[in-house]
Amino acid sequence: MPRILIVEDTSEIAEALQHHLERRGYETALATRAAEAAAVVADARPDLIVLDLGLPDRDGYTVLEQLRARGLDTPVLILSARREEADKVRGFTLGADDYVTKPFGAMELLA
């Protein structure tokens, strides 16, 4: 079963993503802080990482940069409210595989 790590500090979004992914047959793990993400990656060995940029202890760019510096080639999908082109370029430059912006009213879409 494919494993997906969700790195998201907004509990409503994290729980909704987790719920919907598990209903579709994915195994999920959740990290709400950047410091947790590295430990969960080592333990869970995910097939995909869904990464928010706005984490409380460090930004998601730092997480991505550290993962890639360790040689981790697991696909990373950035899921962020940041819509600026510069944010997307930075994400791809650091090694993200895709970048999706959270729509306004994201919670209503996940319901």
Rank of each mutant, 00 (worst) to 15 (best):
G95I: 04
A31E: 02
A16F: 10
Y61T: 00
R3L: 03
L5Y: 04
T93E: 13
R68G: 11
E85G: 09
A106G: 06
R23E: 15
V41T: 05
A111M: 09
I4G: 02
D9M: 01
V40A: 06
E22W: 04
R45K: 14
G91Q: 04
R3G: 05
Q18G: 14
E22D: 07
M1N: 13
P75F: 09
P75T: 13
R33L: 10
D52W: 01
I4S: 03
A42F: 08
D57I: 03
V50P: 03
Y26F: 15
Q66S: 06
G105Q: 13
L79P: 00
V63D: 02
L21K: 08
M107D: 12
A14N: 05
T93V: 09
E8G: 02
D87G: 03
L30C: 08
R23D: 11
R23K: 14
L72V: 08
V40S: 02
L109S: 12
V76Q: 01
S11K: 14
D43L: 06
G95K: 04
Y26H: 14
K102M: 13
D73L: 15
Y26S: 09
D97G: 11
D87I: 01
L30W: 15
V100T: 10
Y61C: 00
R83M: 09
R83D: 15
D97R: 07
D73R: 14
Q18S: 15
P46R: 07
G95V: 04
A96N: 00
D97F: 06
P56W: 13
V50D: 01
M107I: 13
E8Q: 12
K88A: 15
E12T: 14
A96G: 03
Y99H: 11
R83W: 04
L51S: 00
Y26Q: 08
L79R: 02
I6Y: 04
R23C: 11
A111D: 13
R68V: 12
E36T: 05
H20P: 02
E84Y: 09
D57A: 00
G25P: 13
L51E: 00
G60S: 09
A69H: 09
I49M: 13
R45Y: 02
G54R: 01
G71P: 02
Y99V: 10
Y61F: 15
I4F: 01
E85S: 12
T10L: 07
L77E: 06
D87S: 07
D59V: 02
A35K: 10
E36L: 04
K88P: 07
R58V: 05
T10V: 10
L67V: 03
T32Q: 14
P46E: 06
V63K: 05
E8V: 01
P56D: 11
F104N: 11
L67W: 03
A29I: 07
